[in-house]
């Protein structure tokens, strides 16, 4: 998803739009976890719900640590 490629993005209505496992470590090509591709719809739905709940927890100001607040206030990233 980028400013030039908005048509690539999924339809709104579900949150989050995209869940990507992000800690992979490869220094050449970019890797993507495929486990959920083979999971049932119920498992995928549960993962999206869990990701949303985790985001909601981190978004609560009282639960934010210093690093979170610093990042939240950082310009463009």
């Amino acid at each position: 998803m980028s400013a030039e490629r908005d048509s690539d993005r999924p339809e709104p209505g579900d949150v989050p739009l995209v869940v990507r496992s992000s800690a992979g470590a490869n220094c050449s090509s970019v890797g993507s976890v495929v486990d959920l591709l083979f999971a049932t719809a119920a498992v995928s739905t549960a993962v999206f719900a869990a990701a949303w709940a985790a985001l909601a927890r981190e978004a609560r100001p009282e639960d934010q640590d210093d690093a979170t607040q610093r990042d939240n206030n950082a310009p463009a990233g």
Binding site: R20, S22, A51, A54, L55, E58
Partner: peptide
């Protein structure tokens, strides 16, 4: 996210 290795849009 800070507490899970996830990137969300």
């Amino acid at each position: 996210l800070e507490h899970a290795p996830l990137l969300l849009a």
